[in-house]
Amino acid sequence: MNLTILVILLIGLVASAVVCVALSDLLKAAIALAITSAILSIIMFLMGAPLAAVFELSVCAGMITVVFISACSMSRIYTRKEHEQRQKARNRRFLLLPALLVALAVVVFLVLSPHITGVSPIPSGGSGSGVQAALWGSRQVDLIGQIILILTGVYGVIVFFKEKEADGK
């Protein structure tokens, strides 16, 4: 397992996040978010968390993108002039971001470097799923919480996504 691969992936992660946030077209931003999720998923797989990687990929890169793109379809269609104005204002705002990030990275690295000792071995990908099952044995309370949450989500969807009826209830 090579350290450089992970570093490249990390840089890719941050870069796609910047792109995702700075793009003016919402559709492309959603795709960039999906790419970010994919890279994160690969990182997780390489670090020895295959189950989490699968979840991240299917749920985030898949479902969330669907949600966003369907939400994006509601954007107002701006006139050309308005569009150009908004582009300019937007780009001015986001110009600062990459520079800020690089500076931040350097500062944090300098702060941390005295503490860095060595390189621990990276676990090889694919730790047993048997451990996972044992884990759900000790995380049952969270499961109950998630059940409640899912039910809440169902009602949320019912409340929000139903078209307004004409007082028929």
């Binding site: 309370v141 109950i144 919480g145 809440t152």
Partner: peptide, 30 residues
Amino acid sequence: IVAGMNGLVMVTDVFSLYVFMETVSAASFV
């Protein structure tokens, strides 16, 4: 939301606190 809050006051784990807090928040948004 009552079920969520009940869970919240009974857990003994910091992460479970987060789970139930999110449950309560989600229900309150709706």
